[in-house]
């Protein structure tokens, strides 16, 4: 199981365009990937679901944890981390 912990830097948080790019990238992968917000309700959600990702209400400065397992997990998590931490 691979995991990344990222502080979201985008001004709009993980909403709007960053959220769309994040979910599009996750959707292209064939493996399962989840995202959770630290300090939130805690439950990880499907990173391929735009509605679930938006519902986490991740704002600038929040820390998220993304998890994936299987072929190419590290590479995918690196991509997602880059999107989430972009300003």
């Amino acid at each position: 199981m691979a995991e990344r912990k990222i502080t979201v830097e985008s001004e709009v948080g993980l909403h709007a365009r960053p959220a769309a790019t994040f979910v599009q990238t996750a959707t292209k992968a064939s493996i399962d990937v989840t995202v959770a917000k630290l300090g939130g309700s805690g439950a990880p959600v499907n990173a391929k679901s735009i509605l679930s990702v938006l519902s986490l209400d991740v704002r600038r400065g929040d820390t998220i944890v993304i998890n994936a397992e299987g072929e190419g997990a590290d590479e995918l998590l690196d991509q997602l981390a880059a999107i989430a931490s972009a300003t």
Binding site: A20, K48, I50
Partner: peptide, 16 residues
């Protein structure tokens, strides 16, 4: 196009 594209993603949401 961005707005409508985001709406299309919602319609295809796997959770939904």
């Amino acid at each position: 196009q961005d707005v409508l594209g985001a709406q299309a993603m919602m319609a295809r949401d796997p959770g939904l």
